[in-house]
Design a protein around this nucleic acid. Structure first.
Lengths: 109, 109
DNA sequence: AATTATCATCGGAAATTTACGATCAATCGT
DNA sequence: ACGATTGATCGTAAATTTCCGATGATAATT
């Protein structure tokens, strides 16, 4: 994964509203949630949340899917995986000994 | 790890200057780099970079250490690990089947 | 066809971030 | 003690982000 798309993902998740929304979508995989449900959960205005959602979509973290006049949003787990691999490479590639306990702790989850 | 500190880490890494600096520090573990070396690598002004560095330190991603009149900066690998565990929990806790390929790919690195 | 529901986009205000030069504090070398 | 080096902090201007109400576009309902 290139650093630019990782950067976009990090920036997208670096806001409470967007992080909450993404985590909520992960918990609702693979059904997803409509934009309206996400708006309600956020407690923000529809237009305000729409711009946040656009950031997540642009970063590739959320995959919108048209269903009727609703817009179903789904978390892109692969994007999350790619980000984690990108982060892991930083410490594992250069310093494998630093990565060992990290992976060990991940396996048990 | 609480979501607030994860949020701070994500926001801190969501800027090219700070992401670059952090990755550079990871590659220089465990020796670290002086602030001046980081400034030079960033190509920014000393004062500008100093504010970026403060964000990284506040998020706990970088651990400063006084040495003479220099300030040695070191990457906090544990903070990175905690972030990855936080992200992994989102998809693993709710949906273990989503996490399996993620962990599998991490192990090989 | 008209109305309603869902969601994106526009326009603009307020807040925050980013960037810089200048200054200050601390430490080192002379 | 004095000057030089290192890096944090202050003041501030420009850019970006965040938030909202209003408007538009599209699709379902009546």
């Amino acid at each position: 994964m290139e650093t630019d798309s990782s950067l976009a993902i990090l920036a997208a998740l670096g806001h409470p509203t967007r992080l909450d929304a993404f985590r909520l979508l992960v918990r609702h995989e693979p059904d997803g949630l409509s934009t309206g449900q996400l708006v309600e959960a956020s407690g923000l205005t529809q237009s305000t949340f729409s711009t946040h959602l656009a950031v997540l979509v642009k970063a590739g973290l959320v995959l919108p899917e048209k269903r009727g006049r609703q817009q179903i949003q789904r978390a892109n787990i692969k994007a999350l995986k790619d980000l984690m691999l990108f982060l892991a490479k930083d410490c594992c590639q250069g310093r494998p000994e630093l990565c060992e306990p990290l992976v060990a702790e991940l396996i048990c989850c």
